[in-house]
Write a protein that binds this DNA or RNA. Structure first.
Ligand SMILES: NC(=O)c1ccc[n+]([C@@H]2O[C@H](COP(=O)([O-])OP(=O)(O)OC[C@H]3O[C@@H](n4cnc5c(N)ncnc54)[C@H](O)[C@@H]3O)[C@@H](O)[C@H]2O)c1
Ligand SMILES: NC(=O)c1ccc[n+]([C@@H]2O[C@H](COP(=O)([O-])OP(=O)(O)OC[C@H]3O[C@@H](n4cnc5c(N)ncnc54)[C@H](O)[C@@H]3O)[C@@H](O)[C@H]2O)c1
Lengths: 206, 206
DNA sequence: GACACAGTGTGAATATGTTCACAAGCGAGA
DNA sequence: TCTCGCTTGTGAACATATTCACACTGTGTC
């Protein structure tokens, strides 16, 4: 029952699209409808749902409620996971303002900064702490996910602290890959890389 | 001479790492050093550079200057490409503040919003315009890349305007896939999806 | 020289991801 | 009940990406 990264991404997308685009009102949906929403092929959708062990009917397609519950069973897995954000700068604040209510599976419960002027307040429901409290807060709240929005120079040290405190997954926005011990999952979102890739292919395939 | 997306991403990363981590002082670098920086395998680095037609020496490794020029030849391709950003909100402003000087191949030259209170100013060197000027500004400045940081509801319409104005690549932060005509490249950066993926795998592989 | 060494370049093997193509299921209508 | 038209589920083919493994190369040493 191992599900690939790409499939997990799309399951997350399917669920949100069904929720956001008012498909949750409908009782059933076909693979080609989901495919149109997610911008992929019907075969891809069926393969993903097969992997997720979600069954449809050949006459009515997939039951929306079953679909949602099935995807939740995989992504949610019992309880909401908590995340901590480090670096309450421009990007960090944008994320804190955006994220509440976004995901039924993850919530950002604490934010950290080394700059005393950035901490103490509650930003969009999220408490802010000095970076030195990271270990204790992470342990007390059983936080399992870290988000790094500090400058590049601080990123690796923050990641090390997070991992030492028990965090098992890191979403990194700093423009440098983070080295982690095995068993820790890391995702590197790199704006410059994405833009340069786009620049290359937008020239190329036109 | 077709280079895959993954390879382009890594080439962009290699170049930036060499630049940021003071490797540009050194005259040569080995595949295993680049691999350590980029957090991948030496074989991967050699394969990428082979694809990029960059040759090294078996005794000294790769010449840093050759490497930089070689990657630039691929990513830059003669002239800097210009980008336009739509949606000067929390995320849009964070990007405008972050991006200047980040990439030698792409620069954000114009930003657009539908809210009159957001426009008229110059943010970090980038002029802001009403969204209705998008077509003319894009054409006048020969902008080829679009960045969407508007709410979900507006995203597809903005994308359509961008494409009509001649933009060939779109970086989309709105939580919905954008439909584009063939020949237009699109990249969907979805925070919720990334976090949910991380949540899943951080539980799983520990 | 000739040998050892530490690296590159790359065909081949492997792993991962996507699409094809079609049997089988189901409901509607005759 | 039979058949038609649509769908799902899925083995197999295909495509893409990574890793292995090793011949080859330039340099330093004796
Ligand atoms: N702003 C963007 O749109 C954007 C986009 C892509 C990537 N990034 C990356 O995200 C990171 C943050 O960008 P930003 O624009 O928000 O920068 P910023 O300077 O506005 O914010 C950085 C924050 O990190 C805090 N910080 C610094 N050192 C710290 C430490 N050791 N521990 C805890 N907190 C620390 C600072 O006090 C500040 O609040 C950077 O690495 C940047 O490269 C930003
Ligand atoms: N803030 C984040 O960290 C974050 C993270 C991931 C994704 N996103 C996505 O990015 C988008 C923007 O997020 P935000 O937090 O900056 O929101 P925001 O509300 O702060 O900003 C949205 C901006 O878009 C402008 N806008 C609205 N309709 C427009 C239109 N038709 N044409 C031009 N401009 C228009 C608004 O005036 C506003 O300035 C959203 O789709 C959000 O889902 C945000």
């Amino acid at each position: 029952m191992a599900i690939s990264k790409k499939t997990i991404e799309r399951l997350s997308l399917y669920r949100r699209l069904i929720h956001d685009l008012h498909y949750s009102n409908r009782s059933t949906i076909f693979s080609h409808e989901l495919a149109a929403m997610a911008h992929c092929t019907p075969a891809q959708v069926r393969r993903d749902l097969m992997t997720a062990d979600i069954k449809g009917s050949s006459s009515t397609g997939y039951d929306v409620a079953t679909l949602t519950t099935g995807i939740n069973a995989i992504l949610l897995h019992g309880h909401i996971q908590k995340a901590a954000l480090a670096g309450i700068g421009n990007l960090g604040r944008a994320i804190l303002s955006y994220f509440p209510q976004r995901s039924p599976t993850v919530e950002i419960t604490a934010a950290f900064d080394s700059d005393p002027s950035k901490i103490g307040r509650i930003i969009h429901g999220c408490r802010t702490y000095p970076i030195d409290d990271l270990a204790s807060v992470v342990k007390d709240h059983a936080i399992t996910i870290g988000i790094i929005t500090t400058p590049r120079e601080a990123a690796q040290a923050i990641a090390d602290k997070m991992i030492a405190a028990g965090i098992r997954g890191i979403l990194n926005f700093a423009p440098i890959p983070i080295r982690v011990s095995t068993g820790v999952e890391t995702e590197h979102l790199d704006l410059t890389m994405s833009l340069e890739k786009l620049a290359y292919f937008s020239r190329r395939n036109s």
